[in-house]
Design a protein around this nucleic acid. Structure first.
Lengths: 157, 157
DNA sequence: TATTGTTATACTCTATAACTATA
DNA sequence: TATAGTTATAGAGTATAACAATA
């Protein structure tokens, strides 16, 4: 595209200005330290994957939710929810029971073991956030989350 | 965890306040409309996946980059870069040549076909961004990107 | 010895369609 | 007919280790 000789040492910094106007690029790059912090603080010690963690916490705060509700709240497909809940149920972290009102839907509840794990995970999430957001002031953190939420709100359109 | 009867209609809104302090959750939710916009405007019409798009644009603006540089700039592992470049080379969008200076490294260049596709993709990315960020003012967009970059900067630590 | 890139493998996540049981 | 959930399948991303060539 443009004339060029050898680029010299491979450690030369790349010009990524062509990607800097792209939301997706920024999201992907910010996700790197976020995921790293997650696995260090929660994923590895508690043997939980991101979606499993979110489900656990969500169920802990919403007793007897249906899978449909979880699917919508996390933007995870119904088949995926089934698979993840299967894994968690096998670990005896939760149970599923048919709704008396609508026998098509399942109600999900944490077991005692699941509740304890959810609480532990939430404790650890505080240190995790401190690491991932360490460089940001409280005002910046609040602003960032608000703006991300504003973007996310378009996911229903 | 707490006493509860049937939750009623399955469409009831969930309380996700327990996840609202988590960077990872906000990133994942914001990624939904971002990806949707990407595939509608670029991925489907141009048959490009997110990483392929980023690579194409990055190479277009950095002639003769090495794979190592691309790997670092996008936080994509070396094996992954190899695989994706293989795919793009098969479509005759780029070529790889051994460096004369350091014969271990490969220099990547776009073909004419690749340059044209990269330019087209960048054009489309403007409309894509308008859709994904439609709800945000220019100042909000700038602020969001700056904050995400501040988070991403920690990926090297 | 260390680094660039490749190959191979395995695991996770995701999207889709087809199915069941209920409504 | 439509909905909640399940099953099955295939595609795509990612992480890891082992390797070849070169430095």
């Amino acid at each position: 595209m443009s004339p060029s000789a050898d680029v010299g040492p491979a450690s030369a910094i790349l010009d990524d200005s062509s990607l800097r106007h792209l939301l997706g690029h920024h999201l992907a790059q910010a996700d790197v330290p976020a995921k790293k912090a997650f696995f260090r603080h929660i994923g590895d010690p508690l043997q939980l994957r991101p979606v499993e963690f979110s489900l656990l916490v969500l169920i802990a705060h919403n007793d007897n939710v249906t899978q449909k509700q979880l699917s919508q709240a996390l933007s995870v497909s119904a088949p995926n929810i089934t698979i993840v809940l299967d894994r968690l149920a096998e670990r005896e972290l939760l149970t599923r029971t048919r709704s008396e009102v609508d026998r098509r839907s399942q109600h999900v509840r944490l077991t005692r073991k699941g509740s304890l794990l959810a609480r532990k995970a939430q404790e650890l999430s505080l240190t995790m956030e401190r690491e991932a957001l360490g460089g940001l002031s409280e005002a910046e953190r609040a602003m960032l989350f608000e703006l991300l939420q504003k973007v996310a709100r378009r996911r229903k359109l």
